[in-house]
């Protein structure tokens, strides 16, 4: 298969931080989100793909063409990649149409205006960045990246400086424009909703390594790691204890699991728990908050130093003790993959 972007054994050292080695591939029209907490290396990975950060090892291919290997690296402008920066990274001395015409010198004034209009910012053609709103600036950053007709669009947290009300419109714009041009997009974000809105495929990073990679729906429904479950699904991950060979003890009983106990977590997804007044042997938790949800209430409760979500039939006042019961079988997963790719 011809991939839009392929990385093999990509590694990059930045001070004490090491990215990789990472290997993955992105399909020709794929929409991929690289997610992970701050410092997980997702932006560094994107910058290495773009050539803005220098990778130490590994191979990068864009549409089959090697843009980086151990013999050399192609400069960023020749890789055929567009890059949308966090806060637009606009040039303060240039107007919006000048931005586009610098990116694509062949564009006429009319064409650049038309392109700006396509991006929903035709009215700012003669304005400089200081005279634009955050949303307008980010749209201009997007249109600038697309003006050079890239084969792949890279987006580094593009919604971070955009007003909450304008985010949806921008998300739709990115999807539309990428579809129109038939190009792959790779988005970096630490926001689950943003990732799910813009991408069909998720690449989860932790500690400089890729911990999971797969379709968004698969990762949401059956994450392979507790970290992915926590990050994408908002799961609570409780520590477990080793009991005997192949079995671990959790707050909700024993189950068999592979691996060292200290690397394993009990994964509790929202909706996995029911909170009832204390009556049986189930684990007890102290309610923190209770809000109406569907037919009953959603309770936030403190369990083993973590906050878990549980469904309750009646309202439980903060401070009250509740018993938690599991609605699904116990799920114990490794925190991250032992040998992250």
């Amino acid at each position: 298969m011809n991939y839009a972007v392929e990385a093999e054994g990509l590694q990059c050292d930045k001070g004490s931080f090491r990215l990789g080695p990472c290997s993955f591939a992105v399909g020709p029209r794929a929409r991929v989100a690289i997610v992970g907490p701050s410092g997980s290396g997702k932006s560094t990975l994107l910058r290495c793909l773009a050539g803005l950060d220098r990778a130490n090892k590994g191979v990068i291919r864009v549409h089959g063409q090697v843009v980086r290997d151990d013999h050399g690296a192609m400069s960023p402008d020749r890789r055929g990649l567009g890059f949308v920066f966090q806060d637009g990274a606009l040039w303060p001395h240039m107007t919006a149409s000048q931005h586009l015409r610098f990116a694509a010198p062949g564009l006429s004034q009319e064409q650049s205006c038309a392109m700006l209009s396509r991006g929903g910012i035709g009215h700012v053609a003669d304005r400089r960045p200081a005279e634009m709103s955050g949303g307008e600036a980010q749209r201009l950053g997007l249109m600038r990246a697309l003006a050079a007709e890239p084969r792949v669009l890279l987006l580094d947290e593009p919604l971070r400086s955009v007003d909450v009300h304008q985010r949806d419109a921008l998300v739709l714009l990115v999807r539309e424009l990428a579809d129109e041009r038939g190009i792959a997009t790779i988005l970096v974000t630490h926001d689950r909703d943003e990732a799910l809105a813009l991408a069909d495929e998720i690449l989860v990073m932790h500690g400089g390594r890729i911990v999971e990679h797969g379709p968004a729906t698969t990762l949401l429904q059956s994450p392979g790691t507790a970290f992915a479950a926590a990050f994408l699904g908002g799961a609570a991950c409780l520590p477990v204890d080793a009991s005997r060979d192949g079995f671990v003890a959790t707050a909700f009983g024993e189950t068999n699991a592979r691996g060292e106990a200290k690397m394993l977590r009990l994964v509790l997804m929202p909706g996995d728990l029911i909170a009832v007044p204390p009556s049986g042997d189930g684990p007890r938790a102290r309610a923190i908050a209770s809000v109406p949800h569907e037919d009953g209430y959603r309770i936030r409760a403190a369990l083993l130093g973590q906050i878990v979500l549980a469904q309750a039939a009646t309202c439980i006042r903060p401070g009250e003790e509740v018993e938690l019961r599991l609605r699904r079988p116990l799920r114990v997963l490794p925190w991250t993959t032992a040998n992250a790719q």
Partner: peptide, 22 residues
């Protein structure tokens, strides 16, 4: 901001054009 210069590096323009314009 460094990002403004990096944005220019991503575009298919010569080093001279980048230096003079950005």
């Amino acid at each position: 901001p460094l990002a403004a210069e990096e944005a220019a590096r991503m575009l298919p323009r010569s080093a001279l054009a980048r230096a003079l314009t950005i």
